[in-house]
Write a protein that binds this DNA or RNA. Structure first.
Lengths: 227, 227
DNA sequence: TTAAATCGTGATACACTCATGAAGAATAAA
DNA sequence: TTTATTCTTCATGAGTGTATCACGATTTAA
């Protein structure tokens, strides 16, 4: 994804800020949309579905916090990153911002260099997510990460989350053996500790739904997906 | 590549942090090296060539940013991943960190589970690169570590774990004689004690499956794999 | 050549891993 | 709330990977 494909919605009631920040962002090649209050923020957000929203907290009509909450309710914007402008030391707005579903905040006064770096850092997450959310095709099976469903031949199969993640991991490298430990790390995550037999049970479910022949057990090591 | 082959350089001026984080990383099997300021970071980095460096930003003698810049200049460390400890909201340090060539940052306060997750995620890049070259070819035999299978001519052979490890070890240096003692260390691990005849039995299995002629016994010493 | 050490072999017993069915938590949906 | 679905655990049993042992064969050293 190139910078010009990335839309940033910038909302502040001070025209100076809009101009300076907007200029700097455009200069980096981003596609910048501007608004001057919370109502506009919500309207423009729904219309343009930006990748990143930068909101001032204090604004007429509707403040940034409320706008953030409304934007978060829109499912189209679930992947959008929302950040606030906040004055240094304004603890309250930071807390309220995170409560409203913000991902980060940028402190005023704004230094262009800092801002750009921060924006890049924030958008890095997006790119990572973007890359991992491709549609995987293996053999006659299509895994659609975005819609959380898989298509086998002409049949459409809906899988629960864990099963989907597991299949999606195994199918990301057909033939490769994934060690049980790795599977736990990547599907269940480190913070959750589950018993050893859990993986087997999920594999069984997949075997029932997708086909026994696709999943091979390597005893003492793990499982692999074959085409 | 096993975890114990992965070196992590951890630098912070607070002994508590070093101990807690160091303990958690060691527990996962990583080889942890610690230092307490930027000067040490650079020195240890050059000496040990770690795979991952975790730097605190605020340190006496030399801060993390400067240390990072110096480390990045060393061509030996071009594949090394560098991350910072940074407190939430410390805009400046994050920006400066990325500018200095950091790959990521970890926010304080540090939660061990989150840290381990993050470290594993970071090291995954490294491992993937590494594993892609883990196919050994000797004569008409191909040993594919990633898929845990052996291809002999056009025949595909699936070996149980111990046999696979043993073959994999012997074939890693065809012609070289591996002492029984060494084989025990590397296939069984030095903490496990097994009887003296165990190796023979496994060699027998390999002879049955791969071919008698490939394994030569050096009496009183060990075995070697020949093409 | 003989004795000692080492290895190969077959049979066997142990240990471990995994598949499976069922049933109890946990979570989401109605 | 109740209901349904998903997730996890557990017990059981089969299967096989792994280790052990005894004994004969082979090599090495004296």
């Amino acid at each position: 994804m190139k910078n010009k494909d990335i839309k940033i919605l910038l909302v502040d009631d001070e025209p100076d800020i809009l101009e300076i920040v907007g200029y700097n962002l455009s200069n980096e090649g981003y596609n910048v949309i501007t608004g001057s209050n919370g109502v506009e923020a919500v309207k423009l957000g729904k219309k343009h579905k930006p990748h990143l929203v930068i909101l001032d907290v204090m604004m007429p009509e509707m403040d940034g916090i409320e706008a953030c909450e409304l934007l978060r309710k829109n499912p189209d914007l679930s992947d959008t990153i929302i950040t606030f402008f906040t004055a240094r030391g304004e603890d309250y707005s930071q807390v309220a911002g995170f409560d409203a579903g913000a991902d980060d905040y940028i402190t005023k006064p704004i230094k262009p260099k800092v801002l750009i770096s921060k924006v890049k850092a924030l958008l890095r997450r997006l790119k990572e997510k973007d890359e991992s959310s491709e549609v995987i095709k293996v053999g006659h099976i299509v895994i659609d990460r975005e819609e959380y469903k898989i298509v086998k031949g002409k049949e459409e199969i809906v899988l629960p989350r864990k099963e989907f993640e597991l299949l999606s991991l195994l199918a990301s490298k057909p033939g490769k053996v994934f060690k049980r430990e790795d599977i736990l790390d990547r599907v269940w995550g480190n913070e959750v500790v589950v018993g050893g037999r859990t993986i087997d049970v999920h594999i069984r479910k997949l075997r029932e739904k997708i086909g026994d022949e696709s999943f091979k057990t390597i005893k003492g090591v793990g499982y692999k997906f074959v085409v």
